[in-house]
Amino acid sequence: MTRLRTLLGAVLILAGSSLAQAAEPLKIGVSAGPYSEILDFAAKLHKQKTGADIKVVEFSDYTQPNAALAQGDIDFNNFQHKPYLDNQIKTRGYDLVAVERSIVVPLGLYSKTLKSLDELKDGASIAIPNDPANGARALLLLQQSGLITVDPKAGNAATPLDIVANAKKLKFREIDAAQLPRSLDDVDVSAVPLNYAVAAGINPKTALFREGIDTPWGLWFVTQTKRKDDPAIHSFIATYRSPEVKAFIEKRFDGTIIPTW
Protein backbone atom coordinates (compact mmCIF):
# COMPACT_ATOMS: atom_id res chain seq x y z
CA MET A 1 0.00 0.00 0.00
CA THR A 2 2.83 2.39 0.90
CA ARG A 3 4.54 1.71 -2.44
CA LEU A 4 1.24 2.29 -4.27
CA ARG A 5 0.78 5.64 -2.53
CA THR A 6 4.34 6.61 -3.43
CA LEU A 7 3.82 5.75 -7.08
CA LEU A 8 0.48 7.56 -7.11
CA GLY A 9 2.10 10.61 -5.57
CA ALA A 10 4.85 10.58 -8.19
CA VAL A 11 2.27 10.37 -10.98
CA LEU A 12 0.35 13.32 -9.54
CA ILE A 13 3.52 15.38 -9.24
CA LEU A 14 4.46 14.67 -12.86
CA ALA A 15 0.92 15.44 -14.02
CA GLY A 16 0.94 18.67 -12.09
CA SER A 17 4.29 19.59 -13.59
CA SER A 18 2.99 18.90 -17.10
CA LEU A 19 -0.11 21.02 -16.50
CA ALA A 20 2.01 23.84 -15.16
CA GLN A 21 4.18 23.72 -18.25
CA ALA A 22 1.08 23.67 -20.47
CA ALA A 23 -0.22 26.74 -18.65
CA GLU A 24 2.95 28.72 -19.35
CA PRO A 25 2.11 31.62 -21.68
CA LEU A 26 3.73 31.78 -25.08
CA LYS A 27 6.40 34.47 -25.24
CA ILE A 28 6.69 36.62 -28.34
CA GLY A 29 9.66 38.93 -28.84
CA VAL A 30 9.39 42.36 -30.43
CA SER A 31 11.32 45.61 -30.66
CA ALA A 32 9.80 48.51 -28.73
CA GLY A 33 7.31 50.83 -30.41
CA PRO A 34 4.21 50.30 -32.58
CA TYR A 35 4.96 46.61 -33.26
CA SER A 36 4.69 46.00 -29.53
CA GLU A 37 1.49 48.01 -29.19
CA ILE A 38 -0.21 45.93 -31.88
CA LEU A 39 0.95 42.68 -30.25
CA ASP A 40 -0.37 43.84 -26.86
CA PHE A 41 -3.79 44.45 -28.41
CA ALA A 42 -3.72 41.09 -30.20
CA ALA A 43 -2.65 39.30 -26.99
CA LYS A 44 -5.64 40.71 -25.07
CA LEU A 45 -7.98 39.74 -27.92
CA HIS A 46 -6.45 36.24 -28.02
CA LYS A 47 -7.07 35.85 -24.29
CA GLN A 48 -10.72 36.81 -24.81
CA LYS A 49 -11.16 34.43 -27.73
CA THR A 50 -9.22 31.38 -26.53
CA GLY A 51 -8.33 31.87 -22.88
CA ALA A 52 -4.63 31.46 -23.75
CA ASP A 53 -2.10 33.94 -22.40
CA ILE A 54 0.55 35.57 -24.59
CA LYS A 55 3.47 37.43 -23.02
CA VAL A 56 4.92 40.22 -25.16
CA VAL A 57 8.67 40.65 -24.51
CA GLU A 58 10.23 43.92 -25.70
CA PHE A 59 13.87 44.20 -26.79
CA SER A 60 15.89 47.36 -27.25
CA ASP A 61 17.60 46.47 -30.54
CA TYR A 62 17.31 44.25 -33.61
CA THR A 63 19.83 41.58 -32.63
CA GLN A 64 18.32 40.41 -29.35
CA PRO A 65 14.94 38.90 -30.44
CA ASN A 66 16.53 36.33 -32.76
CA ALA A 67 19.23 35.43 -30.23
CA ALA A 68 16.58 34.93 -27.55
CA LEU A 69 14.46 32.84 -29.93
CA ALA A 70 17.40 30.64 -30.96
CA GLN A 71 18.18 30.02 -27.27
CA GLY A 72 14.55 29.15 -26.48
CA ASP A 73 14.01 32.12 -24.16
CA ILE A 74 10.99 33.13 -26.26
CA ASP A 75 8.69 31.06 -28.49
CA PHE A 76 8.46 33.28 -31.57
CA ASN A 77 9.01 36.88 -32.60
CA ASN A 78 7.53 39.55 -34.85
CA PHE A 79 9.87 42.41 -35.65
CA GLN A 80 11.76 41.59 -38.85
CA HIS A 81 11.46 41.32 -42.59
CA LYS A 82 12.69 38.33 -44.60
CA PRO A 83 15.95 39.87 -45.88
CA TYR A 84 17.00 40.61 -42.29
CA LEU A 85 16.07 37.09 -41.16
CA ASP A 86 17.93 35.53 -44.09
CA ASN A 87 21.03 37.54 -43.22
CA GLN A 88 20.83 36.52 -39.55
CA ILE A 89 20.49 32.85 -40.49
CA LYS A 90 23.45 33.11 -42.87
CA THR A 91 25.79 34.99 -40.53
CA ARG A 92 24.78 33.52 -37.15
CA GLY A 93 23.63 30.03 -38.09
CA TYR A 94 20.19 30.33 -36.50
CA ASP A 95 17.75 27.49 -37.19
CA LEU A 96 14.77 29.82 -37.59
CA VAL A 97 11.96 30.06 -40.12
CA ALA A 98 9.38 32.65 -41.20
CA VAL A 99 5.87 31.23 -40.87
CA GLU A 100 3.43 34.05 -41.72
CA ARG A 101 3.37 37.72 -42.74
CA SER A 102 2.07 40.40 -40.39
CA ILE A 103 2.38 44.08 -41.33
CA VAL A 104 4.27 46.52 -43.51
CA VAL A 105 6.01 49.16 -41.41
CA PRO A 106 7.31 51.62 -44.00
CA LEU A 107 10.87 52.90 -43.87
CA GLY A 108 10.86 56.65 -44.44
CA LEU A 109 13.27 59.40 -45.45
CA TYR A 110 13.09 62.22 -42.91
CA SER A 111 14.68 65.65 -42.55
CA LYS A 112 14.60 68.52 -40.09
CA THR A 113 15.71 71.07 -42.66
CA LEU A 114 14.15 70.02 -45.96
CA LYS A 115 10.56 70.04 -47.13
CA SER A 116 11.29 68.03 -50.26
CA LEU A 117 14.03 65.78 -51.59
CA ASP A 118 14.30 68.23 -54.49
CA GLU A 119 15.97 70.62 -52.02
CA LEU A 120 18.92 68.29 -51.43
CA LYS A 121 22.17 70.00 -52.37
CA ASP A 122 25.26 68.37 -53.84
CA GLY A 123 27.30 66.61 -51.18
CA ALA A 124 24.37 66.33 -48.76
CA SER A 125 24.67 63.78 -45.96
CA ILE A 126 22.37 60.76 -45.69
CA ALA A 127 22.13 58.47 -42.65
CA ILE A 128 21.14 54.84 -43.21
CA PRO A 129 20.91 51.81 -40.86
CA ASN A 130 24.23 50.06 -40.27
CA ASP A 131 22.85 46.51 -40.33
CA PRO A 132 23.23 44.89 -43.78
CA ALA A 133 19.56 44.16 -44.51
CA ASN A 134 18.15 47.54 -43.49
CA GLY A 135 21.09 49.36 -45.00
CA ALA A 136 20.27 47.78 -48.35
CA ARG A 137 16.61 48.57 -47.80
CA ALA A 138 17.43 52.25 -47.31
CA LEU A 139 19.60 52.35 -50.43
CA LEU A 140 16.86 50.77 -52.52
CA LEU A 141 14.37 53.31 -51.15
CA LEU A 142 16.74 56.12 -52.12
CA GLN A 143 16.95 54.55 -55.56
CA GLN A 144 13.16 54.43 -55.76
CA SER A 145 13.08 58.13 -54.90
CA GLY A 146 15.37 58.83 -57.85
CA LEU A 147 18.41 60.00 -55.89
CA ILE A 148 20.82 57.14 -56.64
CA THR A 149 21.16 54.00 -58.74
CA VAL A 150 22.24 50.71 -57.16
CA ASP A 151 23.89 47.85 -59.03
CA PRO A 152 21.01 45.42 -59.67
CA LYS A 153 23.35 42.49 -59.03
CA ALA A 154 23.60 43.56 -55.37
CA GLY A 155 19.88 43.20 -54.76
CA ASN A 156 18.87 43.01 -51.09
CA ALA A 157 22.53 42.87 -50.06
CA ALA A 158 23.40 46.31 -51.47
CA THR A 159 25.89 48.53 -49.64
CA PRO A 160 27.10 52.06 -50.42
CA LEU A 161 29.87 50.40 -52.46
CA ASP A 162 27.19 49.14 -54.87
CA ILE A 163 25.99 52.63 -55.81
CA VAL A 164 26.68 53.06 -59.53
CA ALA A 165 25.12 56.51 -60.00
CA ASN A 166 25.09 59.33 -57.46
CA ALA A 167 24.53 62.57 -59.36
CA LYS A 168 24.38 64.73 -56.23
CA LYS A 169 27.49 63.10 -54.75
CA LEU A 170 25.55 62.25 -51.60
CA LYS A 171 27.60 61.18 -48.59
CA PHE A 172 26.42 58.21 -46.54
CA ARG A 173 26.72 57.59 -42.81
CA GLU A 174 25.88 54.13 -41.49
CA ILE A 175 24.36 54.40 -38.01
CA ASP A 176 22.69 52.02 -35.55
CA ALA A 177 18.97 52.00 -36.39
CA ALA A 178 17.90 53.09 -32.90
CA GLN A 179 20.09 56.20 -33.20
CA LEU A 180 18.79 57.32 -36.60
CA PRO A 181 16.18 59.77 -35.20
CA ARG A 182 18.96 61.56 -33.28
CA SER A 183 21.06 61.72 -36.43
CA LEU A 184 18.57 64.19 -37.90
CA ASP A 185 20.41 66.94 -36.00
CA ASP A 186 23.62 66.12 -37.87
CA VAL A 187 22.60 65.00 -41.37
CA ASP A 188 20.39 66.33 -44.14
CA VAL A 189 18.25 63.18 -44.49
CA SER A 190 17.93 60.05 -42.39
CA ALA A 191 16.32 56.74 -43.38
CA VAL A 192 14.44 55.86 -40.20
CA PRO A 193 12.46 52.64 -39.56
CA LEU A 194 8.94 53.58 -38.49
CA ASN A 195 9.10 52.02 -35.02
CA TYR A 196 12.10 54.17 -34.11
CA ALA A 197 10.51 57.24 -35.70
CA VAL A 198 7.36 56.81 -33.60
CA ALA A 199 9.36 56.11 -30.43
CA ALA A 200 11.24 59.39 -31.02
CA GLY A 201 8.02 61.36 -31.49
CA ILE A 202 8.38 61.74 -35.27
CA ASN A 203 5.12 61.72 -37.24
CA PRO A 204 5.53 59.10 -40.02
CA LYS A 205 3.41 61.27 -42.31
CA THR A 206 6.18 63.89 -42.33
CA ALA A 207 8.47 61.54 -44.27
CA LEU A 208 9.71 63.09 -47.51
CA PHE A 209 9.44 59.65 -49.13
CA ARG A 210 8.45 56.23 -47.78
CA GLU A 211 7.70 52.66 -48.76
CA GLY A 212 4.28 51.50 -49.92
CA ILE A 213 2.33 48.27 -49.50
CA ASP A 214 4.21 46.68 -52.42
CA THR A 215 7.51 46.69 -50.52
CA PRO A 216 9.23 43.30 -50.08
CA TRP A 217 10.30 44.39 -46.59
CA GLY A 218 7.12 43.50 -44.70
CA LEU A 219 7.35 41.87 -41.28
CA TRP A 220 6.98 38.14 -40.53
CA PHE A 221 6.26 35.94 -37.56
CA VAL A 222 9.37 33.81 -36.97
CA THR A 223 9.98 30.76 -34.81
CA GLN A 224 12.40 27.85 -34.46
CA THR A 225 12.20 25.49 -37.44
CA LYS A 226 11.16 22.58 -35.22
CA ARG A 227 8.12 24.60 -34.08
CA LYS A 228 6.97 25.90 -37.46
CA ASP A 229 3.72 23.90 -37.20
CA ASP A 230 3.09 24.59 -33.49
CA PRO A 231 -0.73 24.95 -33.19
CA ALA A 232 -0.49 27.39 -30.28
CA ILE A 233 1.69 29.74 -32.31
CA HIS A 234 -0.58 29.50 -35.36
CA SER A 235 -3.63 30.07 -33.17
CA PHE A 236 -2.22 33.40 -32.01
CA ILE A 237 -1.23 34.36 -35.56
CA ALA A 238 -4.82 33.70 -36.64
CA THR A 239 -6.02 36.09 -33.94
CA TYR A 240 -3.45 38.67 -35.00
CA ARG A 241 -4.54 38.43 -38.64
CA SER A 242 -8.18 39.08 -37.72
CA PRO A 243 -10.59 41.88 -38.70
CA GLU A 244 -10.45 43.24 -35.15
CA VAL A 245 -6.67 43.71 -35.18
CA LYS A 246 -6.77 45.12 -38.70
CA ALA A 247 -9.34 47.70 -37.61
CA PHE A 248 -7.21 48.60 -34.58
CA ILE A 249 -4.11 49.13 -36.73
CA GLU A 250 -5.94 51.26 -39.29
CA LYS A 251 -7.55 53.46 -36.62
CA ARG A 252 -4.59 53.73 -34.25
CA PHE A 253 -1.90 54.36 -36.87
CA ASP A 254 -3.97 56.22 -39.46
CA GLY A 255 -2.58 54.41 -42.48
CA THR A 256 1.09 54.65 -41.53
CA ILE A 257 1.25 50.90 -40.75
CA ILE A 258 -0.25 48.57 -43.33
CA PRO A 259 -1.83 45.18 -42.49
CA THR A 260 -1.01 42.48 -45.05
CA TRP A 261 -4.37 40.73 -44.78
Rank of each mutant, 00 (worst) to 15 (best):
T256R: 05
T6V: 01
A67Q: 11
S36D: 00
I103F: 04
A138I: 09
R227C: 00
I213A: 15
V192M: 08
E37I: 02
A70N: 13
W220L: 10
I258T: 02
D185R: 12
I237R: 08
G212Q: 13
L147Q: 12
I249F: 01
A133N: 06
A157Q: 14
N87P: 00
N203W: 03
K112C: 01
A42Y: 11
F41C: 01
T239C: 11
L19H: 11
M1P: 12
A158Y: 07
N77V: 05
T149Q: 14
A154N: 10
P160D: 06
P204K: 03
N203G: 01
T113Y: 07
V56A: 03
V11D: 03
K90C: 00
I126T: 00
N195K: 09
A20S: 14
T225F: 01
R252G: 00
E119C: 09
G212P: 13
K115N: 15
G108V: 11
T225H: 07
N156A: 14
D176K: 13
A191S: 11
Q64C: 00
S36H: 07
Q48R: 14
L219G: 05
A98K: 13
R101I: 06
V30Q: 13
I54F: 11
K49G: 00
A165E: 10
S31Y: 11
I237E: 05
F41M: 05
E100A: 14
E119M: 12
D230Q: 12
I13R: 01
L161V: 06
H234R: 15
L14M: 12
V30F: 12
L114I: 12
D75Q: 09
V97K: 15
G146R: 12
I249G: 01
P25C: 07
A207R: 08
N203K: 14
D230H: 12
P129S: 06
K169C: 00
D122M: 09
A154K: 13
L85D: 02
K226C: 01
V104F: 10
D86M: 11
Y94K: 07
V99Q: 06
P204N: 02
G108M: 10
A15L: 14
N130T: 05
D40K: 15
F221G: 05
A98T: 10
K82W: 08
P132F: 13
P193E: 03
N66D: 01
T2L: 13
S111Y: 12
G201P: 08
A157R: 14
T260D: 09
G108R: 12
I163K: 10
N130S: 15
P204C: 02
I249M: 02
V222Y: 03
S145G: 13
T113W: 07
V56D: 01
G135H: 09
A67I: 05
I175D: 05
E37H: 09
D185W: 04
L85G: 06
E100Y: 04
I126Q: 02
G33W: 09
I54N: 11
I233W: 12
D61M: 02
F41Y: 14
H81D: 15
R210Q: 13
E37C: 01
N166I: 06
L139G: 04
E211Y: 08
E244V: 04
F59P: 06
I258C: 02
F236P: 06
